[in-house]
Write a protein that binds this DNA or RNA. Structure first.
Length: 655
RNA sequence: GCCUCCUUAGCUCAGUGGUAGAGCACCGCUCUUGUAAAGCGAAGGUCAUCGGUUCAAAUCCGAUAGGGGGCUCCA
């Protein structure tokens, strides 16, 4: 029998795994146990650190406001949070005070002490903590088919036995504070060190349901060292600098005029260039890969969405109808029945009608219909965010109709097409996510066997791609499972981009058919495929990925000519003219600014090529390049300069 | 939708009860020959909107709209 303190003398060890279970260092082990050390900087160690920091936050809050009732306080990515029921929400000043109190607790070096309690003991000790009592009650039902506690709540109540963690004085053993908790914890608050900070406060529903009361949540971050905290804060600052809303304003790309309404963007001329390039490239790729382009209107009679099922399942996500064509007599009696028209939230029903416009042969399949279809969704106001979550957006939407035998091959080639196209935009770090149905959720429609087969097919294709595959249980659409491509951007954030989704439901609802080789009528399988997601969102992702410094082909202005003095305007104007003739977006900066000011301005505009010329270059028939990072290449002959620029556009190069 | 914070000139922001300010951008003039800001001047705001308190409101209170951060949602 020995404790972790005896087994591990390395001070970086903060907990241990005993037979696979995380335990406090204070726990006792026997010689037959398998015991592994958990270091502070390991993923487990960081979670424990963050969880302990959450406890200290709660202790600090209750030391300031004893009336605050405790919710839950789990570790999360990069940090932790703790929820409180308080009469007055926390203010930024409150957070400063809480940080001070936390600092005192941390410096004091209080020990975390684990104590096993019976349910009755726990209820007695936590009589003033209604939320904790609720969790104890829930735990009582786990194993009786409830199973409703999620991972975060599990952090509080844990597995086989109820435990309370006490924060006690390192010397006297006096108990300062306690909380229902599974643990494990750091041996001592001092180990939280100085790599932590409170980040913000926000409201959050108790147990994640909007039917419940909103609690006040305090978010914090915690790291093994102060340096790692600083790196984290720098990453946050970098993300802020790249924020597409900020860059969109600075670079004059798009805006959201209040006069139009929430979540509805306009693209300015410069943003329009970028967007057109994004779309043009996509179009080229579609045509080269056997797609046919179709168009459909923005509104439709409601019946179409009854057929598709959208009005039954997603009506709250749609803009309310326009009621048209109703006529009444003088007494107000309806003499002609009106019709409801809806803005479309999805394009698929229209494409189904195109499929169904005439008899289809198996020889036509796979039939790939593609459209940049603008859709409107009545997103809740609180969910809107820049271009990434809007109420009006254009999907690069495609629906592919295949025979059941073609499903696997088509999905495999779709996946390849998707990845290749994304690489063309400069994204090349991907992993896949397989979204499947929950066993018992009634939201998911259709035959179990179909789901199982479809899921298996997707899994095979995903596995064969060789990319990392992550499971997303319960993430499927109501009509079928999907593979989504997640892309990592330049600073390591991941974005869900393309989705390839199987649908057996809509072909059934629309009674879609094709004539098979044997003359029988068969139902096609439908594949939904969005490559960029929405063009607005993809625009935002690229903008953040490149931090506004687009590769040349996407840059709104590709070349700016900067004469050393006015006398060289004409010389450079001629070079710019030659570039324009080749389709390059080139301009001459003939404003009255000094050269250095022009360089500053165009660098801030993130123009990829600045062409500078004065007497020296003019005499040699050359120009000098200056790039966004400030480096220069002087005296390049004009013809070479033009070739270099046009090549960089053709190859989608970054400069 | 819910909680919370915010909204002053085109942009970034000062201005905590006595009816508005700076820098940059825009416009005009003068100047300007080699790699990130030339000088001078003019113009620009019923302080998001509406209502209330007050002798007096950008400032205090309320509502509405828009935005940020979260929660919930995301076909």
């Amino acid at each position: 029998m020995s404790t972790g303190f005896e087994l591990f003398t390395d001070r970086n060890v903060v907990a241990m795994r005993v037979n696979g279970e995380l335990r406090d260092l204070a726990a006792t082990t026997t010689t037959t146990d398998t015991v592994e050390p958990v270091t502070l900087d390991s993923p487990d160690g960081l979670s424990i650190l963050r969880h302990s920091a959450a406890h200290v936050t709660a202790q600090a809050v209750q030391s300031i406001n004893p009336e605050a009732k405790l919710g839950i306080g789990p570790p999360i990515t990069d940090g932790f949070y703790y929820d409180f029921d308080v009469v007055e929400p926390f203010t930024p000043e409150d957070l400063k005070g809480i940080e001070k109190a936390m600092d005192r607790i941390i410096r004091q070096g209080q020990r975390f002490v684990r104590r096993v309690v019976t349910e009755d003991e726990a209820r007695a000790e936590l009589a003033d903590e209604p939320y904790k009592l609720e969790l104890i009650g829930l735990k009582g039902h786990v194993g009786h088919g409830d199973g409703s506690t999620d991972d975060n709540e599990d952090v509080e109540v844990g597995g086989a036995e109820l435990t309370i963690y006490e924060n006690v004085d390192g010397k006297t053993g006096e108990v300062y504070w306690k909380d229902l908790c599974r643990g494990p914890h750091l041996p001592n608050t001092r180990m939280i060190g100085n790599g932590w900070a409170l980040v913000r406060n926000a409201a959050a529903y108790w147990r994640g349901s909007e039917k419940n009361k909103q609690l006040q949540r305090i978010y914090g971050t915690a790291w093994a060292t102060k340096d790692e905290l600083r790196e984290y804060q720098e990453r946050q600052a970098e993300a802020l600098k790249r924020d597409h809303r900020k860059l969109g304003q600075e670079l004059d790309l798009f805006s959201f005029p209040d006069e139009i309404g929430s979540g509805l963007a306009v693209f300015h001329p410069k943003g329009g260039v970028v967007r057109a390039e994004i779309e043009n490239y996509m179009r080229e790729r579609l045509i080269a890969n056997g797609y046919e382009q179709v168009y459909s209107p923005h509104i439709t009679k409601g019946d179409l969405f009854m057929t598709s099922g959208h009005l039954q399942w997603y009506k709250e996500g749609m803009f309310p109808p326009m009621h048209l064509d109703e006529e009444k007599d003088d007494e107000g009696n309806i003499t002609r029945q009106g019709v409801d028209y809806y803005l479309k939230p999805m394009n698929c029903p229209f494409h189904n009608l195109i499929f169904d416009a005439r008899g289809r042969s198996y020889r036509e399949l796979p039939l790939r219909l593609a459209e940049f279809g603008t859709v409107y969704r009545y997103e809740k106001s609180g969910t809107l965010s820049g271009l990434t979550r809007v109420r009006g957006m254009t999907q690069d939407d495609a629906h592919i109709y295949v025979t059941p035998e073609q499903v696997k091959g088509e999905i495999a080639s779709q996946l390849e097409f998707v990845l290749e196209t994304l690489r063309g935009y400069g994204l090349d770090d991907f992993y896949l996510e397989l979204s499947t149905k929950d066993a018992d959720n009634p939201k998911f429609l259709g035959d179990e066997k179909l789901w199982a087969d479809a899921t298996e097919t997707l899994r095979e294709v995903a596995t064969e791609s060789g990319l990392e595959l992550v499971d997303d249980p319960g993430g499927a659409a109501f009509y079928g499972p999907k593979i989504s491509v997640q892309a990592r951007d330049a600073i390591g954030r991941t974005w869900q981009l393309s989705t390839v989704q199987l649908d057996f439901n809509q072909p059934e609802r629309f009674k879609l058919q094709y004539t098979a080789a044997d003359g029988t009528h068969q139902q096609p399988v439908m594949i939904h495929r969005a490559l960029l997601g929405s063009i607005e969102r993809f625009f935002a992702i690229l903008l953040e990925h490149y931090a506004g410094a687009f590769p040349v082909w996407l840059s709104p202005v590709q070349v700016v000519g900067i004469p050393v003095a006015e006398a060289y305007d004409d010389y450079l104007r001629d070079v710019i003219g030659q570039l324009k003739a080749k389709g390059v977006r080139a301009e001459l900066d003939d404003s009255s600014d000094r050269m250095a000011k022009k360089i500053r301005t165009q660098t801030k505009n993130k123009v990829p090529f600045q062409l500078i010329a004065g007497e020296e270059d003019k005499a040699n028939g050359s120009v000098s390049f200056r790039f966004r990072d400030g480096h220069q290449e002087n005296g390049i002959p004009i013809a070479d300069a033009i070739a270099r620029i046009t090549d960089s556009i053709a190859t989608h190069a970054q400069v």
